[in-house]
Design a protein around this nucleic acid. Structure first.
Lengths: 362, 362
DNA sequence: CTCTCAATTGAGACCGGTCTCACAATACAT
DNA sequence: ATGTATTGTGAGACCGGTCTCAATTGAGAG
């Protein structure tokens, strides 16, 4: 510890106190802005602080106050525009309330999520906003709740975990979107999601380890059943994670089927992007050969030909709400657990048409 | 300070020590993994730590070691995919080296940048990666350098500030792209950038407060001059920041000109996006009525009709390099200041054609 | 059977802040 | 003039870690 001898040793309250010829306690009162101080001494200390270019050590402050003024965010993938905006929104709101943000990426891996949580708790964040990667392993989240550290789940509720949530009405949205496809005449529908399964085949809902995915597939299947479509489960495609090429391969396989779907509902904009590119590569025209709806109003969906119909999620609002909820808890609010489910909005664009066979029959 | 009485008081080394029946110093040695400890005591302490669910307080650790294991990032706008990926890449690399990341958004405002820097320095980050918003006011960056805290500028070098930089060959890229437009026969070119100016008219390079913007405009003008184009400065459009509608209005004004440009080079994908949408709204066809090249290979540019030619910037690599450079400095590397200029790659797509009048003449 | 040395261990200072408490100085009431 | 608040200040404990240093122990050497 040669910090004392270094010429670049940061200035401390003690240094300022010495220069202002007051006690450390008094200098701390001025610089920390808490105790009563006379105007004259205040000015003297401030002058000394300025002269020495004093910068408070927030860490030391945090360890003695027990609050860090920081909130931790754990998202699945910052590269995904959905999370990008969420982070932006959370961080805007946090700053507005005087908090900072530490960001961690789980890459949708539970182990990474656990590690990230550990670090954030170690850094004594005042609260956490998490997009849980897997609702089957949540012991680490339970620990957070048990330790009374405020936690808000983002986008993905977890049944049986009593904690604040901000999400969207995934089931309803998927149901309504599927209905639109059915109303357009489609009977061979597919739902493509980024979930990983080995083998990549849908067996049953117990496989769906992300709650939002489950809710959406629920909605999709419910709509199919309501329309009397047989075995809609066969249209569910678990296209795998963001690992290079995995999704693309799944999508290509789907479209290469001798009896390919005539309409697809995509679980997120990345999957939809793969689908769109695959249709282009195969020379398929939307909506003539394939109708497409995607979750999330990504930038690109509005500029393709035709533009893609989407289920718009109010991400920015979601982030703001999550941050506000969290900060309220940090500030001591003790109301019962809240589920904040925001409505989605369907944006109809040119990507929905009648299935080809139907067109031919007319 | 009623922390001691609370039943949720976090477990400390002292608690663990008491339970393991050793001194605080010994427990700390085991938990911190530094001093020599006998195997037997080690196991006892570890068992006690586990039983109590001990979680080290990284803040306390940081204040006594003087290192926080954290690097700070200040970007202009996380919502921008360019920065999104940069953040992702930096954070990946940081984690790989055992560092965490605190994120701050400047919104391209110097004041916010200053504030963010202040907070990050307060939190004693071990190093900083910054995308400076304005190269005219850099006193706060100078302070960082002076205090010997490692700093890497990202994407935007600043002349006269002796500090590590990771950026791209903006001038060359802009020159080459402009040349392509000129070679296609264009003589009325525009360069549209997100810079804000009041009034929004290009007067001279001293106005260009972001170095990358300056370099690109330099390149653009140099190519125009080389081709003997007169008064190319008139084609420079300072379209303003991300404030709602500002860019859109500027772009619409540009296209509504009685003698509109026949080719545009866009400074980033957001501006290009506005331009693309504006052409669609006006019924202009690319590349027949307008040729378009954009900086940055944003997702959407590959799926439009036609797809947009872009200057691809190796963002992920840039982020990785910046993080590695920074971490090397944090670990004590003292080599002279490095400028890491990465090459861009031109991706030719269908958005470049001959100007219309030329076509008509054939 | 001492002596030296290395390996462990504990006591306590320290990091840079906050915060409690006792005390001095002044203001006001009696 | 005396007693009582009120205000400002300093001394020093504390937060939860790290780290220095001296003390204790046992093994091997002479």
């Amino acid at each position: 510890m040669d910090r004392k001898t270094s010429p670049f040793r940061p200035v401390t309250v003690a240094d300022v106190a010495r220069r202002a010829e007051v006690s450390k306690a008094t200098a701390a009162r001025v610089l920390g802005g808490y105790g009563p101080v006379s105007e004259e001494v205040k000015l003297r200390v401030q002058a000394a602080a300025k002269a020495l270019d004093y910068r408070p050590n927030e860490l030391a402050r945090s360890v003695s106050t027990g609050k860090s003024g920081t909130i931790g965010i754990v998202v699945g993938d910052i590269e995904n525009a959905f999370f990008g905006i969420a982070v932006r929104s959370i961080s805007d709101t946090a700053h507005r309330h005087g908090f900072n943000v530490i960001l961690a990426n789980s890459g949708e891996e539970v182990e990474a999520e656990k590690a990230a949580l550990k670090v954030l708790v170690g850094k004594r964040v005042d609260g956490l906003i998490v997009t849980p990667a897997d609702n089957r392993t949540i012991a680490h989240l339970r620990d957070i709740v048990r330790s009374r550290r405020p936690l808000v789940l983002f986008d993905r509720p977890i049944e049986g975990l009593s904690v604040d949530v901000v999400a969207t009405d995934d089931r309803d949205a998927a149901f309504a979107a599927t209905m639109r496809l059915i109303e357009a005449g489609h009977r061979r529908l597919a739902y493509v999601t980024a979930l990983h399964a080995e083998p990549p085949v849908f067996i049953g809902p117990e496989q769906l380890y992300t709650s939002s995915v489950k809710a959406r597939i629920d909605g999709f299947l419910a709509a199919c059943h309501a329309a009397g479509i047989e075995a809609p489960e066969q249209g569910i495609c678990l296209a795998g994670g963001a690992i290079a090429g995995q999704q693309r391969a799944s999508v290509e396989r789907l479209l290469a089927d001798p009896e390919p779907p005539t309409a697809i509902l995509a679980s997120d904009s990345l999957v939809a992007f793969e689908i769109f590119k695959a249709t282009q590569a195969r020379g398929l025209r939307i909506p003539d050969h394939l109708s497409l709806i995607s979750f999330y109003d990504a930038e690109w969906t509005s500029v393709t030909t035709p533009p893609i119909s989407v289920i718009d999620q109010p991400v920015y609002d979601m982030g703001t709400r999550a941050a506000e909820l969290l900060i309220a808890r940090i500030n001591g609010e003790t109301s019962p657990v809240r589920q904040c489910i925001l409505p989605t909005r369907f944006i109809a664009r040119g990507s929905i048409g009648a299935p080809r066979r139907l067109l031919a029959a007319i």
